[in-house]
Amino acid sequence: MTTFKLIINGKTLKGEITIEAVDAAEAEKIFKQYANDNGIDGEWTYDDATKTFTVTE
């Protein structure tokens, strides 16, 4: 398992979430479901060097 981080730069929600996932594809699926569940819709980026996803509304 690898640790992945999501940085949320939303209009109403900001913060960071860290999860353990098998790979970046699994982490992205989990993070996008979390964002969808919380009404966050924005532009996604991923930095493989730091294993960090960012979503900006």
Rank of each mutant, 00 (worst) to 15 (best):
A25P: 14
E28G: 15
W44P: 09
I7L: 05
D37V: 05
A24V: 11
I7T: 03
E43Q: 05
E28M: 05
I40P: 02
I30K: 08
T18P: 05
T50N: 10
F4C: 01
G39E: 15
A21R: 06
A24R: 01
D23F: 04
F53C: 01
T2L: 08
K14G: 11
G39N: 08
D37T: 12
N36V: 10
F31S: 15
N36H: 07
E28P: 00
N36C: 01
T56L: 14
T52L: 12
N9S: 08
V55E: 01
T2N: 15
V55N: 03
E43N: 13
A21W: 06
K14D: 10
D23W: 11
T52N: 14
Q33C: 02
Y34H: 05
K29E: 05
K51M: 06
G15I: 07
E28V: 09
A35V: 06
V22Y: 14
F31K: 00
K32C: 02
G39M: 14
T3V: 15
T18K: 11
E16M: 01
T54F: 05
T52Q: 15
K14Q: 12
L6D: 00
Y46M: 11
K11G: 13
E16Y: 02
T45A: 11
Y34T: 07
T18M: 11
E20L: 09
K5V: 10
V22A: 14
D41Y: 02
I17V: 05
K29N: 13
T3A: 07
I19H: 09
F4Q: 01
N9M: 14
T3H: 13
L13P: 00
N38H: 08
F53H: 15
I40E: 02
D48W: 12
T45M: 12
N36G: 10
G39Q: 15
M1D: 10
I8V: 14
E16I: 01
T12A: 04
K14S: 11
L6I: 02
A35Q: 09
E26Y: 13
A49K: 11
K51H: 11
A21F: 15
A21L: 15
T52A: 10
Q33I: 06
T12P: 15
G15N: 06
A27Q: 00
N38K: 07
E26N: 09
F53K: 00
T45N: 07
I8A: 04
T54L: 07
A21S: 10
N38A: 09
T3Q: 05
I40T: 03
M1E: 13
E57H: 03
K14L: 13
F31Q: 01
E16S: 02
G10P: 03
T3N: 08
A25R: 03
M1R: 08
K51A: 11
K14R: 06
K5Q: 05
I30H: 15
T50D: 06
N38E: 04
I7V: 12
A21I: 10
K32I: 06
T18I: 10
T50V: 10
G10Y: 12
M1A: 12
Y34A: 08
T54H: 15
E57D: 09
A49G: 04
T50E: 08
A49R: 14
D37L: 15
K51C: 01
T45V: 13
I40Y: 05
D48C: 02
T50F: 06
K32Q: 11
T45K: 13
D37P: 01
G39T: 11
T12L: 11
Y46P: 00
K32N: 11
I17H: 14
T45Y: 08
A27P: 01
N9W: 08
